Computed example of a mutant assay.
Amino acid sequence: MESITLDVRTGGSPVVHDLTAECAAFCRDRGDGLLHVFVPHATAGVAIMETGAGSDDDLITALDELLPLDDRWVHRHGRPGHGRDHVVPAFIAPSMSVPVLAGRMTLGTWQSVCLVDTNTDNPNRQVRLSFLPG
């Protein structure tokens, strides 16, 4: 298995960060197999979704509505509502696998691999990409 770690700066607001270009570059010339994407953080996840047409903003809005930033959360440290960030990975999983054929991810036309990060207390993230040859 081959593996690398990406360092991603997500900034000070909840974000859907497109990782597709980095994933494609990692898979290039590797043949057939699986790309595994993993975020080793308790407050972030990865998703396959359309970006750039508003869906990324819609996801953040939906998470804000489903998991409000208020004082209802038992997990309390950091900014108010931070406990919700620890619930996000139950909805947006911290890992995924994508089939790769001839060095290319088999994503659909509008699909992108994205890091979803609602935790503004930690703007520095790591994403591990691993390739399992088939």
Rank of each mutant, 00 (worst) to 15 (best):
T5K: 10
D7M: 05
G11N: 05
G12V: 02
S13M: 13
S13V: 10
V15M: 03
V16W: 00
H17R: 08
A21K: 15
E22W: 03
E22T: 04
C23H: 07
C23L: 11
A24C: 10
A25F: 11
R30E: 11
D32C: 09
G33A: 08
L34N: 05
V37F: 01
V37Y: 02
F38I: 10
H41M: 07
T43M: 07
T43W: 08
T43S: 15
A44E: 04
A44T: 06
I48V: 15
M49L: 15
M49Y: 06
E50L: 12
A53D: 04
G54W: 07
D56N: 06
D56F: 03
D58R: 05
L59R: 01
L59W: 07
I60R: 00
I60C: 06
A62M: 06
A62E: 07
L63G: 04
L63P: 01
L67V: 09
P68W: 12
W73F: 11
V74K: 14
R76G: 12
H77N: 13
G78F: 06
G78S: 14
G78T: 13
P80C: 13
G81M: 09
D85Y: 09
D85A: 10
D85E: 11
D85M: 11
V88I: 15
V88Q: 06
P89C: 14
A90C: 15
P94G: 15
S95D: 07
S97V: 13
S97Q: 14
P99I: 13
A102E: 11
G103Y: 09
R104E: 13
M105L: 15
M105R: 08
T106H: 02
T106N: 03
G108N: 08
T109A: 10
W110F: 11
W110G: 00
Q111M: 14
S112I: 02
S112G: 05
L115K: 03
L115C: 07
V116P: 00
T118K: 02
T118I: 09
T120E: 05
T120Q: 01
D121R: 05
D121C: 07
P123Y: 05
N124S: 14
Q126F: 05
L129H: 04
P133F: 01
G134H: 09
